[in-house]
Design a protein around this nucleic acid. Structure first.
Lengths: 311, 311
DNA sequence: GGAAGTGATGCAATTTTTGCATCACTGCAC
DNA sequence: GTGCAGTGATGCAAAAATTGCATCACTTCC
């Protein structure tokens, strides 16, 4: 899009924090880039960047302007996909920011299913944690975000919420496997494998353990569910995740889940439910493809989980 | 704004319906303009205009794209005013589409008051009727619209609603001037001066008269309230308007209203209240100046009229 | 059948953008 | 202090894009 180049350049400079670096990235000279920026600042009537000895940084006006630029790009993408739609097939690109759990089974399955009927739609997934996901929505780096627990900014619109009880996963022959529900005190003498501290599941577990005054034996901490799951193949222990990470496989006979492991819910009296929100930026018109995909996963979730809260 | 020229050109071509005419208006050659359009169509990947023997017309893709362009322009204006705001004084431009009644006293007073505290804000007013006002919001030709009675499209957000009883205006010495409230049957033998057919007040009156089977003696029809009011100085008759056209001057001792005339409300049992909605385009972020002005007039209305419905 | 309107296109003039070389400045390491 | 490596700004010539002229192909209307 030729008519957007200057704006794209400004966006890159803002991200790089340096005209020369941005020029490298854009494969032009710093001179040319510099002059484009000076020209736009001249047209706006005010500088957009502060000149620092080590580069440039957006000033307040620049912040406002760059936000405008990004929303223009996002809107242009929406318009393009809408126009492409006119010619029959649904094209487009969907950008999703999600926590690790939904990336395991739920999103791969959902995206595969969606792409089966809309092969011209492409996806980009970024794994990230709560605040980061919201930041991506704000900077229009993501169309949709799956956010665990608290929504921090008021610019985020929650399209749907899934409440999920944390599940305790263990080898089939674990002594706790006979119990239908795991109490928190059962965990006191067990070896625990916990997700890392910024994870939502971990925060819920930590506060629950603290309240009950249980000092857990944490033998391993990781931000990879896959790693923790595989670890259990070699060494008996307990780890925790929410059902969405298992694609609804709450019982051991779920074909898709790990055949050597079983999962049992933690007692809701001990540990509160976790909530996963599916969000997009408030006030934004989503690209056709993203809006359709959002519809799809909400429908999908509604059939899988009874606790879906539509909004 | 150099980086917007191509887009502005497309907008003008869409409005003019001819490349050559648009080129004249833009003070360039039709060749140059034509090529810019071809280039953009090439970048979009699809034509935006149908080539007709007598000129060009937007196709569906073009409609979508032009709507995008206009929203970009409106958003850029908002960003500029927001940036200008940083330097102290509130600058900006507010575009209003309104019916004739609010243009009489209410808007002039409101705008004058607003400009007294924000002299760097400029205004543009367009008098228009219901559908037209909504069309202007949609094409981003207006930031705010004062719409009488029904809202037709779902793209319009109603910021506030004023319910107003239609007033019957007459010379001080008219025989009906002694009555505090005018019944519809009182009008049967009177000379009436009515607003023209597309006016909201007229439509309400017409349907009320029809229902009561009263055949009015319409001696004059006009779309100018000022004309109708002045007519009453020369010839005794009745005409009708809502309080907002009189700046709240419901009683004859209102200094601002016409000293030779008095107004009396029609009986609500006979004639339903009219509603005037203050609207803007749904989902749109208003320019700072427009948003502030909107706040002001709503505050203003709330103190003047008890029947203001905030939203 | 001709006149008047439309948009498209080849080619040369013009304008704009770019790149090179260089300046002025700041922070950092020695 | 004194280079040194980094930054953004600027004059000038080359390269690229835009523009205007002349002209074509086409449709409508008289």
């Amino acid at each position: 899009m030729r008519f957007m180049t200057s704006l794209r350049f400004i966006d890159v400079v803002a991200r790089e924090g340096s005209i020369r670096k941005a020029a490298d990235k854009l494969a032009i000279t710093s001179t040319a880039l510099n002059r484009r920026i000076l020209q736009i600042e001249d047209e706006i009537g005010q500088p957009l960047f502060e000149r620092l000895p080590g580069g440039v940084r957006l000033n307040t006006a620049g912040e406002i302007f760059v936000q405008h630029i990004r929303s223009q790009f996002a809107d242009l993408a929406r318009v393009q996909s809408q126009i492409a739609d006119l010619s029959g097939i649904r094209r487009g690109h969907v950008q999703i920011a999600s926590g690790a759990d939904a990336l395991r089974r739920f999103l791969p399955a959902a995206i595969a299913a969606y792409r089966a009927s809309h092969p011209a739609v492409s996806f980009r997934l970024n794994r990230c944690y709560g605040e980061d996901a919201e930041a991506r929505l704000l900077s229009l780096d993501a169309d949709l975000a799956l956010i665990f627990n608290p929504i921090r900014t008021s610019h985020v619109h929650v399209a749907a919420t899934v409440r999920q009880q944390i599940q305790c996963v263990m080898p089939k022959d674990h002594r706790l496997a006979t119990k239908p529900v795991i109490r928190l005190r059962d965990l006191a003498s067990e070896d625990l494998v916990l997700p890392s501290a910024h994870s939502g599941v971990r925060q819920i577990l930590d506060s629950a353990l603290l309240r009950r005054n249980i000092d857990p034996q944490v033998i391993l901490e990781s931000d990879s569910f896959e790693f923790m799951q595989n670890f259990l193949h070699f060494r008996s222990a307990l780890f925790f995740q929410i059902p969405i990470a298992m694609d609804g496989g709450i019982s051991e006979d779920d074909g898709g889940f790990d055949a050597q492991l079983v999962s049992r819910p933690l007692d809701p009296a001990d540990v509160p439910e976790g909530t996963r929100h599916i969000c997009h930026l408030k006030g934004r018109v989503l690209p056709v493809a993203a809006a359709k995909f959002l519809d799809d996963i909400i429908t999908n979730l509604r059939s899988s989980y009874r606790d879906l809260v539509d909004q």
